[in-house]
Design a binder for these strands. Structure first.
Lengths: 229, 229
DNA sequence: ATTTGTATTTCACTTATTGAAACGCTCATT
DNA sequence: AATGAGCGTTTCAATAAGTGAAATACAAAT
């Protein structure tokens, strides 16, 4: 894994990241943030501008339309979100709580790929694209393959205070490719309730890539143990 | 040399574009598509991979999670979409037809920034991020400032056959910043009907950036993506 | 066995990127 | 007015960094 990467491009993408993070940023800020000299940052931002990835207004640089365009395209090509749609909906229907689909991202993080809001007036809220640490969160534990025997993970008051997260793995080819999760305000749930929802989430997660109708012959490809009961 | 742009970065972004367009593409195809040598394409794609903008699976390169993440962030910072929400909803309610918010993109195109589907069982459909030519479309004419006296543009069977598009400009600081539009199957509408909807769209478009109550100076700082109450 | 296509590595060439410095500018301070 | 601080921008010489042809290896198709 020698240095097969181009510094210029890395820097430009870094810059793009800070622009999107901040929503609106001045040249000097962006340069500082990315650790670049002003002239370099200017040149790269201009390139990004010329390709529509950022745009300028009087206040500085802002995410360009190309970013939302590519993002939307990418999402639409993500078959997981359509496959998980029904499962998310069933979870919301039967629990009234917010349900999510999380996938691993490039750095040691996960992100929310799909969101279905709960029906309770007090409910957990998140959004597509939001970043989630892999440690200290239920979905993160699942994504790292740390699922317990019973097929789901419960984390109370972890990263986010006052909420209990319940997650289960979506498995494909022996690998965890996503986490299905339900997040509920802690005051509203008991240990038993969490287990009940846990079993439900695990069942839905298992069903996402193995639709019930077909009777798949036993194809055994398990790298990691516990390919589900 | 007034050409201040970085070839490497341009190429990498071009590559990213083809990957997102195709959804899944092999190295050789991507290289051909972007007009690059295989070795260069490989190097750039690896850089994109290392930053999460693309990922690989057995079939080749696919859009990475970073793209959907940045796209979602960019959309959330786009205040226009929240400002236009109610207008879109009212248009759908009163016409039953699909209503859209279009903005100019970098190359001579526009894109769908917000979508509200109509209620008729036969209705026009599009999606966020979709590209739209600026010529031959109602929204395009509006975005180019070609709006007629009466404040709206009607195009029947232009780019898309069998549909009539009705668009009006969202104006800020004397510039057209977006187009609000309603698209209806041509068989369902008369000239008079189009004019009626046209006036409606124009009124809604005019109201998007001029809501009477608040006097907000353009100091938009969305600091942390915190949950709003 | 041969052909075709792909992914990957290597390497000499030199192009294209880099950052300090200088400049003009606006705004706030003295 | 004068001063200073900060920003955006341009210039330019040094050289770091990207480039692509060719070679290699592998796989699948003929």
């Amino acid at each position: 894994m020698a240095d097969t990467s181009t510094r210029t491009v890395e820097r430009a993408l870094l810059l793009l990241g800070t622009v999107c993070d901040r929503g609106s940023v001045t040249l000097a800020d962006a340069a500082r943030d990315a650790g670049l000299s002003a002239s370099t940052a200017l040149r790269l931002l201009r390139t990004l501008e010329g390709t529509g990835f950022v745009r300028r207004d009087d206040n500085g640089y802002r995410p360009g339309m190309r970013v939302v365009q590519l993002g939307a395209q990418a999402l639409s090509h993500e078959s997981l979100v359509s496959l998980a749609e029904e499962a998310l909906e069933r979870l919301v229907d039967s629990t009234g709580e917010s349900a999510y689909l999380n996938v691993p991202s490039h750095d040691g993080h996960g992100i929310y790929l799909s969101v279905r809001e709960g029906t309770h007036s007090v409910r957990h809220t998140s959004w597509v694209g939001r970043s989630i640490p892999l440690e200290g969160s239920a979905a993160g534990a699942v994504l790292r393959g740390r699922t317990a025997e019973d097929g789901f993970v419960v984390v109370s008051n972890g990263i986010e205070p006052d909420v209990t997260a319940i997650a289960a793995p979506v498995i494909s080819g022996g690998h965890v490719v996503a986490a299905l999760s339900v997040v509920v305000p802690s005051y509203r749930i008991t240990d038993d309730g969490a287990r009940r929802i846990g079993r439900q989430v695990a069942a839905e997660a298992a069903g996402i890539l193995t639709p019930p109708p077909t009777n798949t012959p036993p194809t055994n490809e398990s790298t990691s143990p516990g390919a589900q009961a």
